[in-house]
Design a protein around this nucleic acid. Structure first.
Lengths: 134, 134
DNA sequence: TATTTGTATGCAAAAATTTGCATATAAAGT
DNA sequence: ACTTTATATGCAAATTTTTGCATACAAATA
């Protein structure tokens, strides 16, 4: 029983739902710094939220050098069912904004890998503008 | 989004899951006093737990005199989906014990209505024993 | 080996939830 | 009208969760 409770608890939080939403909608594996920019939240907030979701079984991680890619855990049927349930209810405005910002951030990848890291927003906006103008 | 969060929160609690379990397994509408005996919990604990579940949309109530029957809300598809999901994961020991005690309590109904109310455990056990011996 | 960089985590303050008790309410029966 | 009975609720203490900061760690680079 504790296991189910842990899963429901993990999903009882706006930040964590926003994270799950981004993985569902983008279909990508994402790293902390990409989520930071998509959600406009500090690094520790993203890391902690991911930690909770990972202990509850929603994510697995893949390390690539200093980067850590989080990935929805599709190996467990309870998780798949819950994720599937969520799909129908992730339609509020906050989610959309996150998705739009993530798209711009993802556009800066090279070979579908994150290469930007944690940078001040000003520089990020500049990179995005350059990307559009070339 | 707040609505989904409220639903997940409602299910993130042992007492509340135990209650939902009894409704699922028994298939009956139940009143507070019956849940008290099935779960060996004080009246206020049951009432409060039901209150949380009701605000989250899991239950509706039907008043019959002083008795109030709670009933799983099958009119909302999200609720139905969540209830259905839960069915596969409500298999821990606590649930079974609740179910056994509920069965004995339900056996004391007349015309499928609760007539016993809140009584001390000793008297309850006596009633149950009498029931078996006649 | 020193530094940088992406991510995690320990800890204390703040906020939210739960628990227990006492009491309130509302319908029935006397 | 008064009492009894089933259920709800207000409130304070206890517990849990969240938030923010500072710092730690581990891999890469210089």
């Amino acid at each position: 029983m504790d296991k189910i409770i842990e899963k429901f608890k993990a999903l009882s939080d706006e930040t964590r739902l926003r994270i799950v939403n981004l993985f569902i909608k983008s279909g990508k594996n994402l790293c902390v710094c990409e989520l930071m920019d998509a959600m406009h939240l500090p690094q520790y907030a993203i890391s902690k939220a991911l930690g909770v979701l990972k202990s509850a079984g929603f994510f697995v991680t893949e390390k690539e050098g200093t980067w850590i890619y989080y990935k929805l855990n599709r190996d467990k049927s309870e998780i798949k069912t819950l994720i599937n349930f969520l799909k129908s209810y992730l339609d509020s405005d906050v989610f959309l904004q996150d998705e739009e910002r993530l798209q711009k951030r993802i556009a800066l990848r090279l070979n579908d890998k994150c290469v930007v890291g944690i940078i001040p927003e000003k520089e990020l906006l500049k990179l995005i503008k350059d990307k559009v103008n070339n």
